[in-house]
Design a binder for these strands. Structure first.
Length: 449
DNA sequence: TCTGGGGTCCTAGGACCC
DNA sequence: TCTGGGGTCCTAGGACCC
């Protein structure tokens, strides 16, 4: 166990919504919900203004619409913009330490002990964290981050969560148990609804309660691995290291249909599309895998998986889709599927035909390094001209840059404003107006020294 | 208008081998 | 012929995270 609070956890506050408010000044101070805008979409992020009305992550967007007042903005996600903002923050973190673990697009651990820059007592870490928060806000154009610091990942993570948004929690060495004790067990990463319910039935509500349980009882209730893990975490016994890079274990793609699909031909065609996405991402990452998994969600939300393992690893979309189609053949589809998915696991770094390319360099195909990784990995969908997505960035030949305020019935309404231009006029066009084009996200980084 | 999409880890049973 | 223990691989499902 460390004797300095040298692990930081940085968590950007309501990141997707915050980026939207940064890029669209008219949304600042207003409730914003970012998520799937199809009939079956769920909330990815609700701004704090929207949380007041009960909008939450993972909630159906339809439910969020019911709860939030008119004037709430409901936007489709713009991942390219979020990725750029994430990169800006990750670069700041990399300046603090060579050891940074990016957990997700909006979350990372930093191991300050990996550098030898001076003291890491409470005061020094607090100052460093306050400075970091200010620099994140400045570098991102107003997106805030909450930071936790402590002697372990556990403490840092819970600390960053405690005073969101724009919070800072530094837990002094030796104070870990006192810090955790009164918190609900659900504050622990790894305690979801099912585990929380089992613990509740055992009379366990707080982490302090949990720490009072005998390990044998926890193992009996939660299984060996989970029981042991929680027993240790409740005692602040956490030696998990900050790890820089992690190898991917699987690559998958799935789609939920707007309406359930029972037509095998249509499902097969969907598998072709998904297999092509998975194959392209495998290839871009220089990976291939032996196991192909089909995922199917029935009309009643029951979900099954069927997998098959081949002798040779592949990244070939034709091979992937062939395996997936065969697996689908054994699934009863007559009631209709709401979701279908394809995954590849058992990954290795070398594709089968890499062996061939050694013999025949001319047959060597493009490698990941030859491609722009992001574009290759996640092609941003180009919306059909008539199907504008709310929140999408657009450019009008006459009126300039703006974003889609709303659309429907053959029309699209655009608000003309940018990150640094004040809210402009709202104008409505025909959805197929040739003067209107999808545009890149406003790139305000660098435009303002 | 009930419930996305991309992942990780664990469990448990059966096959198979030594 | 019967019994059995341990290890590994594969498959299916479930909990959980962001």
């Amino acid at each position: 166990m460390r004797d300095t609070p040298s692990i930081l956890h940085v968590d950007l506050d309501a990141m997707f919504a915050s980026v939207e408010q940064r890029d669209k000044p008219s949304l600042r101070g207003r409730p914003v919900v970012v998520g799937g805008m199809g009939g079956r979409g769920v909330v990815a992020t609700a701004s704090y203004e929207a949380r007041v009305f009960g909008a939450r992550s993972a909630m159906p967007v339809a439910e969020a619409r019911r709860r939030c007042p008119s004037g709430t903005a409901f936007l489709a996600p713009r991942f390219a913009a979020y990725r750029r903002t994430s990169q800006v923050v990750m670069e700041l973190l990399a300046g603090l330490s060579p050891l940074v673990e990016a957990v997700s697009i909006d979350e990372a651990y930093v191991d300050l002990a990996a550098t030898s820059t001076g003291g890491l007592d409470i005061r020094a870490v607090t100052e460093l964290a306050l400075d970091l928060k200010a620099r994140i806000r400045a570098a991102t154009g107003g997106v805030t981050g909450s930071v936790g610091a402590g002697t372990s990942k556990l403490i840092a993570k819970i600390g960053s969560d405690l005073h969101k948004p724009d919070g800072l929690t530094v837990v002094a060495p030796g104070q870990e148990r006192a810090f955790l004790g009164p918190l609900p067990v659900t504050a622990l990463s790894g305690v979801g609804p099912a585990t929380a319910e089992r613990l509740r039935r055992a009379g366990v509500h707080t982490i302090g309660d949990l720490a009072g349980l005998a390990p044998a009882e926890l193992i009996e209730r939660l299984g060996q691995a989970h029981g042991v893990a929680l027993y240790r975490l409740a005692r602040a016994d956490d030696g998990r290291p900050v790890v820089g890079e992690r190898e991917a274990k699987s690559v998958s793609a799935e789609e939920t249909f707007a309406a359930d699909v029972a037509d095998p031909a249509r499902l097969g065609a969907e598998l072709d599309v998904l297999a092509a996405q998975v194959g392209a991402r495998l290839r871009a990452a220089g990976l291939s895998g032996r196991t192909v998994t089909l995922k199917a969600r029935h009309f009643d939300f029951t979900t099954i998986t069927r997998s098959t393992t081949r002798a040779q690893a592949t990244d070939d979309p034709r091979v992937i889709t062939q395996a997936a189609r065969r697996l689908l053949g054994d699934v009863d589809v007559s009631g209709g599927l709401r979701l279908i998915g394809v995954g590849v696991s058992g990954l290795t770094e070398f594709a089968q035909d890499d062996l061939l390319s050694l013999l025949d360099p001319a047959a060597r195909r493009e490698t990941a390094a030859d491609q722009a990784p992001d574009e290759a990995a996640e092609p941003e969908p180009e919306p059909a001209r008539a199907g504008w997505r709310t929140g999408e960035d657009v450019r009008h030949a006459v009126h300039g840059a703006g974003w889609v305020w709303g659309s429907g019935r053959g029309r699209v309404t655009v608000r003309f404003e940018g990150p640094r231009t004040p809210p402009g006029p709202v104008r409505t066009f025909a959805a197929d107006d040739p003067a209107l084009h999808p545009a890149d996200p406003p790139d305000w980084h660098g435009a303002e020294g």
